[in-house]
Simulated scan of single mutants.
Amino acid sequence: MKKLGLVCFTFVSLTLSWASHAEDKRYISDELSTYIHTGPGTQYRIIGTLNAGEEVTVLSVNENAGYAQIRDSKDRTSWLPLNQLSQTPSLRLRVPELEKQVSDLTARLGNIDQEWNQRTADMQQKVSASDNIITALRNENQDLKNQLIVAQKKVDAANVQLDDKQREIILQWFLYGGGVAGIGLLIGLLLPHLIPSRKKNDRWMR
C-alpha cells in the first residue's frame, strides 16, 4: 500500500513538473549538434539530430532523467538532454537581428547627423543674418550720430549769427535813440533863442 502511494506521488510530481515546462521555447546550444531519442534516455532509439541554434518547443520535462520532450521545426516529437537546451536565442538567430539593429542604428545616426548638419547650417545662416543686421544698425547709428553732430554745429552757427544780429539791432536802436535824443536836445537848446529874436524884430518894425 505504501509503495502504491509512493508511485502515485512520484507520478503526480512528474506530471506537475512536465506541465510546468509545457510549451516552453528553448534553443539547441550553439556548441553542438545533438541526437534526439524516442524517450528520456540514451537507451531509447535515436530518431534524428538537431543542429546548433535550432529553435524547439519544450513539451514536458523529466527531471529525474534530465531529459526534455520537445517538438522541433519539422514537427517531430522527441527527447534530448536538458543541458543541451538554452533559454537564449542562438547566435545564428541573433546575428541577423543584431545586424538589422546595427543597420537601423546606422541609418538613424545618419539621419541624426544630417539633421544636425542642417540645423548647424540654419544656425550659421541665422547668425550671419543677425551679424548683417547688427552691422547695418551700427552703420545707421553712426550716420545718425554724424548727422546729429552736423545739425548741432549748424544750430551753434545759427545761434552765433542770431547773437550777432541781436547785437547789431540793439546797437542800431541805441544809435537811433541817441540820435533822436541828440536832435531833440539840440532843438530844445536852439528853439528858445529863435522865438525871442522874432518878437524883437516884430516890435522894431512897428
Score class of each variant (00 low, 15 high):
residue 108 R to H: 02
residue 109 L to Q: 10
residue 109 L to M: 11
residue 112 I to D: 08
residue 113 D to W: 12
residue 113 D to R: 01
residue 114 Q to N: 13
residue 114 Q to L: 08
residue 114 Q to Y: 03
residue 114 Q to D: 14
residue 115 E to F: 02
residue 117 N to I: 06
residue 117 N to T: 09
residue 118 Q to N: 12
residue 118 Q to E: 13
residue 119 R to T: 08
residue 122 D to Y: 01
residue 122 D to M: 06
residue 122 D to P: 00
residue 124 Q to H: 07
residue 124 Q to Y: 04
residue 125 Q to L: 02
residue 126 K to D: 08
residue 127 V to C: 02
residue 129 A to E: 03
residue 129 A to V: 10
residue 130 S to K: 14
residue 130 S to W: 15
residue 131 D to Q: 08
residue 131 D to G: 07
residue 133 I to H: 06
residue 134 I to H: 03
residue 135 T to I: 10
residue 136 A to T: 05
residue 136 A to D: 01
residue 137 L to N: 12
residue 137 L to D: 09
residue 139 N to K: 12
residue 139 N to V: 15
residue 141 N to Q: 05
residue 141 N to E: 14
residue 142 Q to D: 12
residue 142 Q to T: 15
residue 142 Q to W: 04
residue 143 D to C: 10
residue 144 L to C: 09
residue 146 N to V: 14
residue 147 Q to S: 07
residue 147 Q to V: 05
residue 149 I to D: 15
residue 150 V to G: 04
residue 151 A to I: 07
residue 151 A to M: 08
residue 153 K to I: 06
residue 153 K to F: 14
residue 154 K to T: 09
residue 156 D to C: 04
residue 157 A to R: 12
residue 157 A to G: 09
residue 158 A to V: 04
residue 161 Q to R: 15
residue 162 L to G: 09
residue 162 L to Y: 11
residue 162 L to I: 09
residue 163 D to T: 13
residue 164 D to P: 01
residue 164 D to G: 12
residue 164 D to C: 06
residue 165 K to N: 13
residue 165 K to P: 02
residue 167 R to M: 11
residue 167 R to K: 15
residue 169 I to E: 11
residue 170 I to P: 11
residue 173 W to F: 10
residue 175 L to P: 04
residue 176 Y to R: 05
residue 176 Y to I: 13
residue 176 Y to V: 06
residue 179 G to S: 10
residue 181 A to V: 05
residue 181 A to Y: 05
residue 183 I to W: 00
residue 184 G to Y: 02
residue 186 L to P: 01
residue 187 I to Q: 05
residue 187 I to A: 02
residue 187 I to L: 05
residue 187 I to E: 03
residue 188 G to P: 00
residue 191 L to P: 02
